[in-house]
Design a protein around this nucleic acid. Structure first.
Lengths: 158, 158
DNA sequence: GAAATAGCGGCATATGATGCCAATAACTCT
DNA sequence: AGAGTTATTGGCATCATATGCCGCTATTTC
């Protein structure tokens, strides 16, 4: 996939929308130094090109009862297609698993799971996670502090 | 922090806005089965309560040249305040580090770093990451496949 | 230097957001 | 159970914003 050529104004648009996806076009235009018309045209082009993937609302996990986020490293029994695909399919079914990456190296998969609290996670692990076929072993890492968690990708110099 | 009581309509609103943060209030109202006025009022209340933290645009990393995302596990030389805080401060300065969690257990920190490609990451590691004071050792995990990467938290039953 | 191209700004119209008010539904207390 | 109270809804009027079109300007190309 070819990276797309972005000029300084495009980058400012992307920085602004990554920060606030609900900026009105008028505000965005003012911020990047254009009039609304060409600004909107650039946004549409960035959307159509897939540079802007989508707009989402981010919730405060604690406010809706998910006080805890846990990392889980998983080792499978084998790397054959059935084992791996079966695991991936099971992961897709579980909404509390918000991230899952297949890794090259030490362990096979890294997950992030949200839960109400440690007890709720324990239950989730024994009732859902540990029941997935093909898992050889798993290790849980508990975050002490969320130092940084950005959805923004760096688009501006500096 | 107290979790907030959400009724069925609130949950539908949150699900919809997590999926598409740019839904117009008219569309959102239709989707959750309200008229625009009370729908907008609920959204404002959810925003003011902090349940909706913010709205953002999500970019396609590959389209802007970040073909690679790398996990890094870090062990510090000590757990004293100066060492830990120094590390945290350094992490905040580096835009390519998009996530950083302090962990309880095996390793001290888990990072996610975006880079143009493996060679660019290697340069980032030696020129920026490895130069942070207080690091004892570090291990890099390369994702083979992004199985799942949701910003959405589960808010609906099922 | 002339023609062609790309990108900008302004304007008119349609659509949506926002605040107010009356009506309805749910809830409470006796 | 019923009357009063509170919370929530839907509709309407107004204002702001989005959107598409057109002419203008700057830049490029030959």
């Amino acid at each position: 996939m070819m990276p797309i050529t972005l000029d300084r104004i495009d980058r400012r648009i992307l920085a602004a929308l990554q920060r606030d996806g609900r900026l009105t076009n008028v505000e965005l235009a003012r911020e990047v130094g254009l009039s609304p018309s060409p600004c909107l045209r650039r946004v549409r082009l960035l959307e159509e090109a897939g540079v802007i993937d989508r707009y989402v609302a981010l919730l405060n996990a604690e406010k809706i009862g998910y006080g805890m986020s846990v990392f889980v490293r998983i080792w499978l029994k084998g790397q054959d297609k059935d084992t791996v695909q079966g695991f991936i399919d099971a992961v897709q079914q579980l909404g509390q698993i918000v991230e899952c990456h297949q890794l090259a190296g030490d362990c096979d998969f890294l997950l992030r799971v949200v839960a109400e609290n440690l007890e709720a996670y324990r239950r989730f692990q024994s009732e859902h996670l540990a029941r997935i076929a093909g898992i050889s072993s798993l290790k849980t890492d508990i975050p002490l502090l969320n130092v940084k968690s950005r959805t923004e990708l760096p688009v501006l110099p500096g």
